[in-house]
Nucleic acid binder design. Sequence first.
RNA 1: GUGGGUGUAGCUCAGCUGGUUAGAGCACCUGGUUGUGGCCCAGGAGGCCGUGGGUUCAAGUCCCAUCACUCACCCCA
Length: 417
Amino acid sequence: MSNIIRSIKGTHDILPEDSKKWQQLESTIRKITHQFGYEEIRTPIFEKTGLFSRSVGEDTDIVSKEMYSWEDRDNTSLTLRPELTAPVVRSFIQHNLGGLSPLQRLFYIGPLFRRERPQKGRQRQFHQYGIEAFGSPHPEQDAEVISLAYSLLTQLGLTNLNLKLNSIGSPECRAQYRNALQDYLRPFLNELSETSQKRFENNPLRILDTKVPHEIDIIKNAPNITDFLTHEDQAHFNSVQSFLNQLNIPFTCDPTMVRGLDYYTRTTFEITSSALGAQDALLGGGRYDKLVETLGGKATPAIGFAAGMERILLALEAETPFESYDSTDIYMVCLDESVLSVSIDLANQLRQAGKSVKMETLRRSMKAQMREANRSGATYAFILGENEIQNKTVVIKKLKEGNQETVLQTEILEKLK
RNA sequence: GUGGGUGUAGCUCAGCUGGUUAGAGCACCUGGUUGUGGCCCAGGAGGCCGUGGGUUCAAGUCCCAUCACUCACCCCA
């Protein structure tokens, strides 16, 4: 056991028992995104490193210490994607999707990589699904995106949800707020933690996120970003809120919620679940009206979110245990080597007719085969022995009811209708 | 990167203050039924007790180291 090769720290195999849950989650995602008119985009697993440092932000944790990066043979630095908004924006620009239609609604599902210390709800390879809506600067677009996020979680059956909403304004008013915040914090500078002191210069808004009790006290009286919003920002924010009210989506405003990525503007939001542990954010997102420009595209407002699929599954299991299902129709019980040829043939016919068929390939005892048939959840056991081969029949047993009948092999398909 | 917890069968775990052949339940296989599953009964297979070192007449048990897993901090999905 000590000598075997194990999966890499922070990565997990999704075994058949769990892959069913994933498939179920994915199909719900596809259903809901389709209802809202979003279409799937798939981008490569790795990108040039510069894509992330330019968009996510050089000073963020993701870029500064969590990326899996390496030098390719031509010395370009490549990185396993740590998030998906930047690649989607890159693709949007590269293929001029904005030119195809002034509004692009996209969704994605796929694995991401961050080199963090694993814990509950956090892995080094994990999966997100998310959506990005390019083109509209208007609050109804914000409401649509948030509504999609909320609908998905509630339709999955989650209840312990908490939607937090904030607006961090346009870059102009954020600069003003930044100054005001620095002015407020300067007298306390010596009392702040080392990390907060570092942030004071390069990203003071992040200090609002602090969990240090002493700093939380200081933050309490800090100026509020809401007071620095321009009239337009404020009107946008108010409008988003009233749309959400109209949709009966409960939310709370949290002016200290500053998302960890640099590219956000105006609306930011997050949905947490109280069914989870310390890592309780199911999804997070916001508007990023300047990112397309920053990456060299035509100025295009956009908004999206990313949701952690592992966390959604964790929350689901905490709230309502999944029921496992198996949709095998028929188990072919083979009593003797001499029946194999006929059995293979019948299984083939049944599959061509659309049935799901498992055939015994272990040559086990009949008892073991019947047990296996039962376990596999099959509706029918087809029993083939020497008698059946001689009479060109098959015994069809309904496993749930326990009754059985002998049917001519040529009439099997009729019988199953 | 920093702390805490835990490593015994495929899974969940017992194993008292060190004492001789290492245990249970579930799962698996075989049989009880010359060709019939679920329930029951009987039997079987499956462990270098995470790894390395130390103390001891004797270590799954005590000590040290190491690795792995896990939870939490930081931060995020």
